[in-house]
Design a binder for these strands. Sequence first.
DNA 1: GTTAGAATGTTTATGTGATAAACAATTTAT
DNA 2: ATAAATTGTTTATCACATAAACATTCTAAC
Lengths: 152, 152
Amino acid sequence: MHSDDKNGIDYSMLQSRLGYKLRRAQLVYFDVFSEACAQEGITPGLFGILAIVYHNPGLTQTAVSNALDVDRSAMVAAIDKLEGMEVVERRKSKHDRRSYALYLTEKGKAFTERLDRQVNEGESAFDSFLSEEERRWLLDTLDRIIQARKGG
Amino acid sequence: MHSDDKNGIDYSMLQSRLGYKLRRAQLVYFDVFSEACAQEGITPGLFGILAIVYHNPGLTQTAVSNALDVDRSAMVAAIDKLEGMEVVERRKSKHDRRSYALYLTEKGKAFTERLDRQVNEGESAFDSFLSEEERRWLLDTLDRIIQARKGG
DNA sequence: GTTAGAATGTTTATGTGATAAACAATTTAT
DNA sequence: ATAAATTGTTTATCACATAAACATTCTAAC
């Protein structure tokens, strides 16, 4: 009954745990992302916002927070920062005076496109050991995990 | 060229990004883990420590932090808490008066075994849509991602 | 052996991010 | 017109990661 060893350490309870492996793998991608664009002051969370607003201009803060499954209170500081960087702007909605419609500035569009390329390069240079088929399978499986939760 | 839609929202820049999906999937598992044992005051990070010390009694704090790839400064508060719960104990090392050897108490062993079962149940009730083969493939792939970083 | 360098546990600080409660202003439903 | 829900916001807490610095102790070089 010899155990799962690495550097002489027994990882029995963690080795086959998806939650643990997902956490470790996510940390790796966080590092890769940071190397790709930490210099720009953009974190994965901020990039998510840019990506959503880029392709869906005019959404409210709450709509973006729903799209990314984060609390809407988290949007305030994030949008404040992106507005300070002059890549996103809040425009008052005519239909609903409570809410803002979010748009990328011209600078923000170019910025987002550049970040998208940089992150793609950084990630693909790193996960090129995955075939395109494996990559798709992995993405689909992760999606199934994410969706499985929605129903519960 | 109609785009990746969900609830009428275009996820183009995120849809095929492994980092994003890993983050979301990890969040899901964090929730499942929490439901399984948040009542015991145990977080995923603390469980990792218990799992390592359970199978590798006598390791120093630094050795455990290396095993889990966290900074050793993060161990202090964690071990403090586990010691306060009377599940882990620090014993002064005879060979090195700087360091402690970590051990589970009898209570800690039973506690860890129970948590292990609870988390296994919580996770498997949730990811049962994966075949055993798919699960192994997923674990292996995540391992490859984690290991790929070590070399770079 | 003494001395210089490295390692151990520790404290303190910063930052990211998730989560939750509460509030005023506004909109929607009754 | 009144009650209920929604929007952005503030504030708080917690998990977790990272980094610098420090005293004590050990290791290596001389």
